[in-house]
Design a protein around this nucleic acid. Structure first.
Length: 957
RNA sequence: GGAUGGUUAGCUCAGCUGGCUAGAGCAUUCGCUUGACGUGCGAAAGGUCACAAGUUCGAGUCUUGUACCAUCCACCA
């Protein structure tokens, strides 16, 4: 017994235990309790049942707050419990690029640090700088996950913009295109006429301003003496009106519904239609419908059209262009006027015709650009949509049939309601940070408004009608890679030098055994090529010869590497200084023969020549290049832009195989990126797939996340997994509530009431924090942070600690190993009545806790354990058992020495040990740190493992 | 306006398929305690489970309605 005296010190013990787990790779599914660490292949084939959870990826732009990490506590309960019942378990962690929020945060950072906007930086630079910024933050966020005890396999951690993930996400879009599920449709966007860009809602803000509410008379077409009066703050948009809308229940307008009105100042006639969205009380109860320049109007139009007969449908007419000037099918005198000016002119003209009934003052919220402060013009723009009809039906079915179960159950009502009302999904976003849409145009895609006020797209002056038309005309391609020729580049075979991170391009010796093996592996991994281009150096040449088989081999000096510092961007002198060992041992004798080192620019030029050569001579061939690391770097720099798919790296045998595209000139990629949920929705199979574990761990078991993204995220994962994999992504959804601030308020950065996990962990320990998340809380319900409760849980940990100390103190002379946590035959443990009583209760508790966890009532399971261990085991049993286990009385004389007493003492000791071990195991999913720490001290049976993580759940049958 | 929850002790919340003489933590009051633990132990006090009606042998638990609160979504022409 080596437990230190005094109280349990969580903050000191926990980091050491975490290190112990990580060092021993216990979090990997490859860890096997008897055989140790298996290879991935062996793990896939071993017989253990599987269990997997994909951790919802936290935003990678900031450290999580105490609420953000709460989910990991629940996920970890499931992970650890399933390990204890003998399954092989995968927790799949990841980090999210966070689309819009990410871009906003990055823009802010770059602006503060460098006074540069993203436009100053340019798209490519912005993307790359952002990427490295995120990469730097990710390990810190990962540590936050580990510190709370989340036992996921961090070696398999993935970033959402990891090329392997990107490839899968974009591939889904390409597949949808082939299945005719994507289309371009018009949609209202926030257009900032000053910044000349589309803004996401989050990039806008609202300001109050006083404006005129103008009441305009629209005469009846049949009888100009009668009219309908509409109220508007944007009089000039009347030129784009396509209907007047009233409440269907409004008696005032009963007679005019379905008839036509004459639209003043124009020659057009517009119908009167109805919508339940209209409020009779506002204005005159009649709304002028301008679907092209008001979001609500657009929605009303869509709803009306989805119900109405074809001849009754209403359209939209765009009358404002991207300079906020009037355009479209309107009288000449208004064309080109800016909106503010146009409003005055329009009101003036209407007044002259006697069509203004009155003008009232009205306070209105206008939307302005957050940065430019310009008034946002809602305009029509062509956006990408996904037809959800085919997606939603199976996703509704699986929940209705219970193939995917949602906990708490009532949340499935929310899910079904959302799904049944789901409309086509607009997936494009005008951002730079994210997955750029894999559509390529032969020239710039121009959006214009034609004389009818309709949005039109053209490429190179040729009008296109949607993506399928554009592809047919040869003006667009939908594919992951840029149009061009794919080439494969393989690093030539050598193994000795690169361990130091150094290339050995000048090393002109022949292939060694490892090199030959490497080349042979490459043969199988790569397949056949038409042409293999290699440098004249013998190693590369030899590798190429083995791989080439029947292919034509081209040797060229262009591929030779003559800049030794390329890898690290060093000059020869810097290189020699940095790697003296390498220069001395490996290259000294060859150095005199080497041509002078080149500058990087010179090498780049040779790479350019090489690319030109391939284009010219082998453009229709399958080309493989065998070359050196430094040259590969140059290729990457030249060919891999932000379309991550182009720098894909595929390493089946730890070979360095790079697939790159030599782009065909003239193709321009679509400017937009995907809605974050389009990629997040694929996170389950994108991650498991990128780690090549689909056969073993898919579908996953539990998706544990916050209830507020059930509709946004969970629904998309279900739809997209069914579509791409033909499988559900998970069988169960567990939704936890949101952690609120101590005062019951929602925690948010803007309120300044966020609490960092460290703040709590330093004070109370991660185990206490986990108990706060779990004990007595039910799925879906929020709860405030309570320092009183944290204090209580800290005391509970201390209780566990001290009870263990008692057991260990008075059982140190118990030497037998019949002390497995096996409650199946209690009479084998003890015949004593008290012992039987506590053991029976522990047995019942074991079954109950198990049932609670398996039925997703983990709050009840934790609470039961807390109560029972403390108030039954500690307060009652230990007090009662004391006289039986003491070996000396108050004066120090030996007691409990008679044969009966000794036997009873032994039974008591065995009971104490088995009871304690059972509690530790049951508690482990909830408080992993302290239970692991105590497990180290506890006497073991033959079946016990060194770590508590992989020991056996107490046997009760 | 739509959807979904909540309303149980002074506070924060549990209560799974109806059996409850309604629980926990914290707070309150009284007492005890020196060989696991004062981060302890024992006990007390505290609730017509929002309100109303219904189903049932039996309702905190099921049904309907009302009131208030919360969250999400949609919007303010």
């Amino acid at each position: 017994m080596t437990l230190p005296k005094g109280a349990y010190n969580a903050t000191q013990e926990e980091p050491e235990i975490l290190k112990y787990w990580l060092d021993n790779q216990f979090f990997k599914p490859e860890y096997h309790p008897e055989k140790g660490l298996l290879s991935t292949e062996e793990m896939k084939n071993d017989g253990r049942e599987t269990f997997s959870i994909v951790n919802p990826p936290p935003n990678a732009y900031m450290r999580p707050h105490i609420g953000n990490v709460s989910g990991y506590a629940y996920q970890d309960v499931f992970l650890r419990y399933n390990r204890l019942i003998g399954k092989k378990v995968l927790g799949q962690p990841g980090k999210d690029h966070a689309g819009i929020q990410g871009e906003v945060v990055l823009e802010k950072i770059f602006w503060e640090n460098k006074k540069k906007s993203k436009h100053d930086m340019g798209r490519e630079k912005f993307y790359k700088t952002s990427y490295s910024h995120f990469e730097k933050l990710m390990p810190k966020i990962m540590y936050d996950e580990q510190r709370i005890g989340l036992s996921s396999d961090y070696d398999r951690n993935l970033f959402t913009l990891d090329p392997r993930v990107v490839e899968r996400v974009l591939g889904t879009f390409v597949q949808m295109y082939k299945d005719k599920m994507v289309y371009k449709g018009v949609r209202i966007v926030n257009w900032d006429p000053v910044a000349k860009t589309t803004l996401a809602d989050i990039d806008t803000e609202r300001v109050e301003r006083e404006t005129d509410l103008v009441y305009i008379k629209y005469p009846y077409a049949e009888d100009p003496s009668k009219f309908v009066t509409v109220a508007t703050t944007r009089a000039e948009t009347m030129l784009g009106d396509t209907a007047v809308v009233v409440d269907p229940k409004d008696k005032r307008y009963k007679d005019i519904v379905g008839k036509k009105l004459k639209l003043p100042l124009t020659e057009r006639e517009i119908p009167v239609i109805t919508s339940p969205r209209i409020e009779q009380e506002f204005g005159t109860g009649a709304l002028k419908l301008t679907p092209s320049h008001a979001y609500e109007d657009f929605v009303i139009m869509s709803e009306w059209n989805s119900e109405a007969e074809p001849e009754q449908q209403v359209g939209y007419i765009n009358v404002i262009d991207k300079d906020a000037k009037l355009t479209g099918p309107i009288p000449e005198k208004y064309k080109g006027l800016e909106t503010d000016e146009a409003r005055k002119v329009v009101i003036h003209d209407l007044q002259e015709q006697g069509l203004i009934e009155k003008i009232e003052k009205h306070t209105q919220n206008v939307v302005i650009g957050e940065r430019s402060k310009a008034i946002i013009e809602p305009i029509m723009s062509s956006q990408w949509f996904i037809d959800v009809e085919q997606l939603k039906k199976p996703a509704i079915e699986v929940v209705k049939k219970g193939e995917v179960k949602i906990h708490p159950e009532y949340m499935s009502k929310k899910y079904l309601h959302w799904m049944e009302n789901l409309h086509d999904w607009p997936v494009s976003r005008s951002l730079w940070w994210g997955y750029r849409i894999p559509v390529w145009y032969k020239g710039e895609l121009i959006e214009t408004i034609d004389t009818e006020g309709q949005v039109k797209e053209s490429i190179n002056g040729i009008e296109i009608d949607g993506i399928y038309d554009a592809v047919e005309k040869g003006l667009a391609k939908v594919q992951i890679d840029a149009p061009g020729q794919e080439i494969t580049i393989l690093r030539h075979g050598q193994t000795d030098a690169n361990e130091k991170g150094i290339i050995s391009g000048w090393d002109d010796t022949n292939l060694n055994e490892a090199g030959i093996k490497y080349a042979n592996q490459a043969v199988t991994a790569l397949g056949d090529f038409d042409v293999v281009i290699t440098s004249t150096l013998s190693r590369a040449k030899e590798t190429a010869q083995i791989i080439a088989k029947d292919a034509e081999i081209i040797e060229t000096d262009l591929l030779k590497e003559r800049n030794f510092g390329l890898l690290n961007g060093l000059t020869w002198d810097e290189f020699s200084e940095k790697y003296p060992e390498h220069v001395k041992n490996n290259t000294a004798e060859y150095q005199p023969e080497l041509p002078e080192a080149e500058t990087i620019e010179e090498v780049e030029e040779r790479v350019d020549q090489l690319i030109a050569m391939i284009k010219e001579q082998y453009s229709d061939k399958k080309v493989l290049l065998v070359t050196h690391t430094g040259i590969i770097r140059i290729f990457k720099r030249k060919l891999a832009d932000m379309s991550a798919a182009q720098s894909r790296q595929d390493d089946p045998e730890n070979l360095e195989i790079h697939k790159m595209i030599i782009p065909e000139s003239g193709w321009i990629q679509d400017n937009d990126v995907f809605d974050t949920w389009f990629s997040s929705g694929q996170w389950t199979y994108a991650t498991i797939g990128a780690n090549d574990l689909m056969d073993t761990f898919y579908p996953t078991n539990i998706m544990e996340t916050a209830y507020d993204i059930l509709e946004l995220w969970v629904s998309r994962m279900i739809m997209l997994s069914l579509y791409t994999q033909n499988k559900i992504p998970f069988t169960d959804v567990y939704l936890h509530g949101l952690v609120k601030a101590p005062d019951g308020q929602k925690m948010s950065k803007s309120k300044g009431n966020v609490i960092a996990p460290e703040e709590i962990i330093d004070q109370f320990g991660a185990d206490s924090l986990r108990l706060l998340y779990v004990v007595g809380n039910k799925a879906g319900a929020g709860y405030p942070v309570s320092y009183e409760k944290l204090e209580g849980y800290k005391r509970f940990l201390n209780k566990i600690w001290n009870a263990s100390k008692f057991v260990l103190n008075f059982t140190s002379d118990y030497e037998e190993t019949d002390i497995a946590a096996d409650l199946s035959k209690l009479e084998d443990i003890s015949t004593n009545e008290l012992d039987q009583k506590i053991l029976t209760e522990i047995k019942e508790v074991t079954d109950k806790v198990q049932e609670h966890i398996e039925k997703y009532r983990i709050g009840l399971g934790a609470e039961l354990l807390y109560q029972h261990m403390w108030h039954t085991f500690c307060d009652e049993y230990i007090e009662q058992v004391k006289p039986r286990v003491y070996s000396r009385d108050q004066e120090g004389n030996p007691i409990n020495t008679s044969p009966e007493e000794a036997a009873s003492r032994k039974e008591a000791q065995r009971t104490l040990i088995i009871a304690l071990k059972s509690y530790l195991i049951l508690l482990h999913p909830f408080v992993p740190f302290i239970t692991e720490r105590l497990w180290k001290e506890v006497p073991k049976s033959e079946t016990d493992t060194e770590t508590i993580m992989y020991t056996h759940w107490p046997k009760t049958k």
